[in-house]
Computed example of a mutant assay.
Amino acid sequence: MIERFIELGQGYGDLYEMLEIMKTNQERIHNTFVFVSEKDGKKVASFAVAMKPVGDSKFMPIYICREGIPYNAEKTSQRYDLFKEGIEAANKILITLEVKHSSAYVETTLYYQYLIGLLRLYHYIPNLG
């Protein structure tokens, strides 16, 4: 299986694009995630959705809105609530993981490899092979 993160952006428009992808591809949703990280004492969230491969393809896209949403577990934001509503409409569960901030890596590619390793370790995406 080949997993690849596809970054949509960090704004409201990008979240709406992700929600539309989820809505029109509900049967393809594998898992949904909130990656929580901290930078300069502030927590931020990344929203992500892993999609099942199409047909005989071995490609699993993982759409992500990276670190653009302030995160507070006690008081959720409007974007968090919208994402959660989209997940509930698709009859899926939200998986929340505490992760390192992407600024800890020299390149975004290395950050995404780190996330793929975590997702594979916890069996949230299929194993290699």
Rank of each mutant, 00 (worst) to 15 (best):
Y80N: 01
E20W: 13
A50K: 01
H30C: 05
E17C: 09
Y124L: 14
F33A: 02
I95Q: 03
F33L: 06
G55I: 14
G55T: 14
K39Q: 12
E38H: 04
V36S: 05
K84L: 06
N127I: 06
G55Y: 13
E38G: 05
Q26T: 14
L19R: 10
Y122W: 13
A50F: 04
I116G: 00
M18H: 04
F35W: 07
Y16P: 01
S37T: 10
C65D: 00
R120H: 07
E38R: 08
Y63D: 01
I116W: 11
H101P: 00
I64P: 02
A89L: 12
L118F: 11
E20P: 05
Y80S: 05
E88A: 10
M18I: 11
F33W: 05
F83E: 03
E74A: 10
Y71D: 00
N31K: 13
E17A: 07
S102K: 07
T96F: 10
R79E: 14
V106A: 15
K84T: 09
D40C: 06
M18P: 04
C65L: 15
E38L: 08
A89E: 13
Y111F: 14
K75Y: 02
L15M: 09
Q113D: 15
E20G: 06
Y105V: 01
H30I: 04
T96Y: 12
Y12D: 12
K92M: 09
H30G: 05
I87Q: 00
L15H: 01
M22D: 10
K23R: 12
Y16R: 12
G129A: 11
N72G: 08
E67C: 06
K52E: 07
Q113M: 13
V34E: 06
A50Y: 02
R79T: 05
L115M: 07
Y63M: 07
E67Y: 04
R120D: 00
E20F: 08
Q78K: 13
I125H: 01
Q26K: 13
E20R: 15
M1F: 15
F5C: 04
P53R: 09
D40T: 08
S103V: 09
A104K: 08
V99A: 03
I2C: 09
Q10C: 08
R66H: 08
K84G: 00
